[in-house]
């Protein structure tokens, strides 16, 4: 395993007033140049784990490291020069044009007041092109459809010129095409441009098609970590979703099929 981008060592987090830990003794590693999926059902602690990895939360126990240092020692701007994040929800308070919102991806590089230079405008143009959002550049963000808005936010993360691209349920409310497009873009950034990618989602089948490594989270614990073909077993998926499934293979990648009640026991023991 090469240089580690993210590393969790027995990290736990408990929200103030919560009875149980949202993340419990989680250990995982994201090596440079890999595409990693973090999967689990709703409420499993995926997003909390991601916030710990990104230093937005401080673990109540254990250790989180980013680029070899404790993540808490990173300045936010320095981290934002290396990591671009697309979060699940975002509602701008005031109308912005697409080009303006993508240009905000240059903040980690230019700071609070300096005007954008030629290199910044080039980065914005490249990011818009890669995310297939160039045609949207002069639109107001409020007029965008869900899929267009997602491409714009992907473009903004790319405008940060990051080493790591993180999608946190960024596609959860969108249809299949937009989710596939976002994952294809992330995969391309990893394969062709040397980025490291982290995809957080509950769509296990889809993400298994793309990633080198899956981290399976259930009830705040890391259930398994490894290549999809290894960790995506019937037992793991059934435990994860508390529902019987059958497992098929598509080009070497396991894909699960949820079983109807009448189908249980027909092809397998329950």
């Amino acid at each position: 395993m090469g240089e580690l981008i993210f590393e969790a060592r027995g990290a736990s987090y408990r929200y103030a007033g919560a009875a149980t830990e949202a993340v419990s003794r989680a250990s995982l590693a994201v090596p440079r140049g890999e595409l990693v999926g973090i999967v689990g059902p709703n409420g499993s602690g995926k997003t909390t784990l991601l916030r710990l990895l990104l230093g937005a939360l401080t673990p109540t126990a254990g250790e989180m490291r980013a680029f070899g240092q404790p993540v808490a020692t990173w300045k936010r701007r320095a981290l934002a020069r290396r990591i671009g994040v697309v979060v699940q929800r975002e509602e701008p308070t005031f109308p912005l044009r697409v080009r303006e919102t993508v240009a905000l991806g240059r903040y980690p590089h230019v700071g609070a007041m300096r005007a954008l230079g030629a290199a910044d405008h080039a980065a914005v143009a490249t990011a818009l092109a890669r995310a297939d959002a160039t045609a949207l550049a002069d639109r107001w963000t409020a007029t965008l459809s869900g899929g267009e808005w997602q491409r714009v936010r992907l473009a903004r993360a790319l405008a940060q010129e990051p080493e790591v691209l993180v999608l946190d349920e960024a596609t959860a409310n969108l249809d299949l095409r937009h989710e596939m497009e976002a994952f294809e873009l992330a995969a391309e950034m990893v394969r062709a441009h040397g980025l490291t990618g982290v995809l957080v989602t509950h769509h296990v089948n889809l993400v298994a098609r793309f990633v080198d490594r899956l981290v399976i989270i259930d009830r705040g614990e890391v259930l398994a970590m490894g290549p999809p073909a290894v960790v995506l077993t019937r037992e793991a998926v059934e435990r994860l979703f508390a529902w019987p499934v059958d497992l098929v293979h598509w080009r070497g990648v396991p894909q699960f099929v949820p079983l109807r009640r009448a189908e249980r026991g027909a092809s397998q023991e329950p």
């Binding site: 934002a80 979060v87 975002e90 701008p92 308070t93 919102t101 905000l104 903040y107 903004r156």
Partner: peptide, 15 residues
């Protein structure tokens, strides 16, 4: 500008 996107996006953009 970052803050008017929301606190979480602002944080991940470096604020």
């Amino acid at each position: 500008d970052l803050l008017s996107l929301g606190e979480e996006p602002a944080r991940f953009l470096g604020a």
